[in-house]
Design a protein around this nucleic acid. Structure first.
Lengths: 221, 221
DNA sequence: ATTCTATTTTAGGCAAACCTAATAAATTTT
DNA sequence: AAAATTTATTAGGTTTGCCTAAAATAGAAT
């Protein structure tokens, strides 16, 4: 089955929303997330309900069926693969890719997704550190933690950011930190919770605020 | 200004149509090309006329304004860049890329086009041998000729095909011929106009029909 | 020059997705 | 538990892009 751009946006939105908040998603939550009106949401989820992509009961919110979830995962897969492509292949910055990926995720071609995936060498995480679902919709889980919580002297790899504002990404660039950078916490300051990290024999100072916005993962595997 | 998917399709169609047939394009020509009805075409070109992208006069057909032509060229630029990307980077076959590029050409991001162009190293021709307009909409002209018309013993490079059916492309593959292959005509048969070409010390026989569907260019550049 | 034919335009509708305003249901407050 | 408030749904419109059928025009044939 092939779905409209709007239908795809709704499926993705529902999935995204219940990663944090619990299922059934309220109509108003969706309307807020999609910058649309509650009445438009009601209309659309009724349609998706008929297509058996969601379970919807009047006044009780909505959640995805297995089928709807698979669809959502495939869209998210495409979104994140394209983000990875934009950053790794075309040299975009982390914060520039979202809008473009929002468009690219709707391109319909299984072959394209497969070939892109292969070309990128089957990446497991996108540039923001979020996992990329595989062909079957399976997500590798992340084990990512905040740099602020990393143990001293353990080699870590930067896998993403929590704050993906242009300001923060520029800040990281200035400090020579980016996706894939391998660092080691050498010191944690008691009084302001700032940290010192070592990167290629260079000592870098990061405030608590910065350290709480960088995701890292133990560098083994 | 940003235009709808349909508007873009119409602009591109008008441009494509008057590469062959003369300007003003008839409503029915456009309808045929776009697989839509004449009444729909009338409606749309009236809208494009108001937006000053085309000049339209009742019953007398339509042609592009300078602005409309620039828009069309930018869409064609995107289409052909993406085709080049799909074939060169993702290893698609020539005949598989058109539908996907039809979708990708509508992605809106100047930066994406620039970066893609740079990544591909500013290609001048797409995999079918058609020229890719540059940022300013300038087309390099091709000097491509049919293999059937190539002089004997002059090294030529395959730059495209006229027939891009799956059948023909498979045929070429079987003969070990593809985009960029360098060949030399060694013999032209008088009686059936078939040709013999040399490719890496291998003699290949091609019928007149085949030779009339392969575009080549002198291999100097 | 008039008639015939083919093309084009206009008129009137339809579906998708959105909107505002009115109503209905659920939830919270008293 | 009733009233008040918040949230959700329905009703009725709008826009975009398509369609069919009817009317208008242009071009060809007599």
């Amino acid at each position: 089955m092939v779905y409209s751009l709007s239908e795809e946006d709704y499926l993705k939105a529902i999935y995204s929303l219940y990663e944090e908040k619990p299922r059934p998603i309220a109509t108003s939550k969706l309307a807020g997330y999609l910058s649309t009106k509650a009445s438009s949401v009601t209309e659309m989820i009724q349609k998706l309900n008929e297509k058996k992509l969601v379970i919807y009961q009047k006044y009780r919110g909505v959640y995805l069926t297995k089928d709807g979830e698979n669809q959502a995962l495939q869209i998210i897969r495409k979104h994140r693969l394209w983000e990875y492509f934009l950053v790794e292949t075309l040299d975009f910055k982390w914060d520039e890719v979202h809008n473009i990926a929002e468009q690219l995720e709707h391109i319909k071609s299984d072959m394209l997704v497969d070939k892109l995936d292969a070309y990128l060498d089957y990446p497991k995480f996108d540039p923001h550190g979020d996992p990329i679902p595989d062909k079957d919709g399976i997500l590798k889980d992340q084990h990512k933690i905040l740099l602020a919580e990393a143990a001293i002297d353990q080699p870590m790899i930067i896998v993403g950011v929590k704050d993906s504002s242009a300001d923060f990404l520029r800040f990281l660039e200035k400090k020579n930190l980016s996706l894939g950078t391998i660092i080691k916490v050498t010191e944690q300051e008691e009084f302001d919770h700032s940290v010192s990290v070592l990167h290629k024999n260079q000592e870098i100072q990061l405030s608590a605020i910065a350290a709480k916005n960088i995701y890292v993962q133990p560098n083994d595997k």
